[in-house]
Design a binder for these strands. Structure first.
Lengths: 212, 212
DNA sequence: ACCCCACCTTACCGCTCGGTACAAAAAATG
DNA sequence: CATTTTTTGTACCGAGCGGTAAGGTGGGGT
């Protein structure tokens, strides 16, 4: 019944996390449906039966890969939430997202989006799964911003949900841009502009927008 | 040698634009790789040889579908560019984009992104093609905003390229959200926030952001 | 009325897909 | 060293993929 440390039998010739990282990269670059089993086994350096014995199926491997991606590549989001002010949280979130989207040691963009925004009907579960992951991040940010409103860090008229959605939308848009080749500097210039909205909402000149 | 009006022989039993609109919808909902020939012919109401005789291949059909999508569904972007001020251009662009992203008579989201952000290597041309389409829209907006700077409508320190990129990124983020089920009202609330950045940049309180 | 020719229908092509059966191979156990 | 247990490599499975060949079908032109 004890799991994890199988002692008897032939030991594995690969490290599970290592090959999982390879799978992350392939899914990241080509999406769920754009990634074939052959591409996976080729990149992971293992063969098909090993993959299935370890991960169960292509879809389960993808779920594992996405979980590992969030742990290893989106950790910055949790770090940003710890900062003391809403402005700092949002700036850190967007800045480190841009840095992650344009780092050279992995595919550009974001697995949450490139993994499969739209899929064939039989793979609809995959896009729903990814959307749920993004929604979870947005809710965490929303809670943090709601706290900022309660603490008086943001004015009471600010809607934390809308602001969280705006920040996530900007990040997702940057992911789309990064996937298409935008540079780090270009995206930071866009962050500059997004932050002006946050600054305006943070009380300095609230209501400056001309919209009714 | 005259094209377009084939007079001899059996006439087509379908209208080319009508079946193309059906193809747009299927690609829009399931992406390029998530759409099979069977799904296409089923939705278009024609059979495979008719499709190939008319459109050449799946990829060419997609290109035609994307062109038609831009003509019929993204016409609002060109309309927005005609408005007199940069603020109005941006607001109209984002507002009508949200309305288009959440209209009930077609799939939610945006074909440019759902069509295939990441594809398998053999379909890489498709995602490049879509990215080129998005870049074209961004450049058109950039030119319009550059004109606004020249006219004094935007302050001289505003970078039209960065602002256009920001606006497009927000729109793309909204497309991702819409594909995941965000409502029209939710996205308009995000537009409200984005417009605060534009208002701040438009001269009222430029430099309010604390970022260095 | 005839013929013609493009279109529609059916059935099929080679290929790759995700997934698996089976036996050789390799370490721990006795 | 034989046995056990697990992994590995190879070779294969049915199904669906994108794309096509060939003949029946039906609305023109003359």
């Amino acid at each position: 019944m004890d799991e994890g440390t199988a002692s008897v039998g032939r030991p594995r010739a690969f490290d599970e996390e290592t090959v999982l990282d390879r799978a992350v990269e392939v899914f990241w670059r080509h999406g769920y449906e754009g990634t074939s089993l052959s591409a996976l086994t080729g990149a992971m350096g293992i063969n098909r039966p090993s993959l299935y014995a370890t991960f169960g199926s292509k879809e389960e491997l993808f779920r594992r890969a996405f979980a590992r991606y969030r742990e290893t590549r989106v950790a910055y989001a949790a770090v940003a939430l710890e900062l003391p002010t809403a402005y700092a949280v949002i700036e850190e979130h967007l800045r480190s997202a841009v840095d992650a989207l344009t780092a050279g040691d992995h595919p550009p963009g974001c697995l949450s989006i490139q993994g499969g925004l739209a899929c064939s009907p039989e793979n609809a579960r995959v896009s729903e799964f990814l959307a749920a992951g993004r929604a979870a991040g947005e809710e965490a940010l929303e809670r943090r911003l709601a706290r900022a409103v309660q603490e008086g860090d943001l004015p009471p008229h600010v809607d934390p949900r809308a602001l969280a959605r705006f920040v996530m939308a900007v990040g997702e848009g940057h992911a789309v841009h990064a996937a298409a080749g935008a540079t780090r500097e270009e995206l930071h210039a866009s962050v500059d502009i997004a932050l002006q909205a946050v600054a305006a909402m943070s009380g300095r000149t609230a209501g400056a927008a001309g919209a009714s």
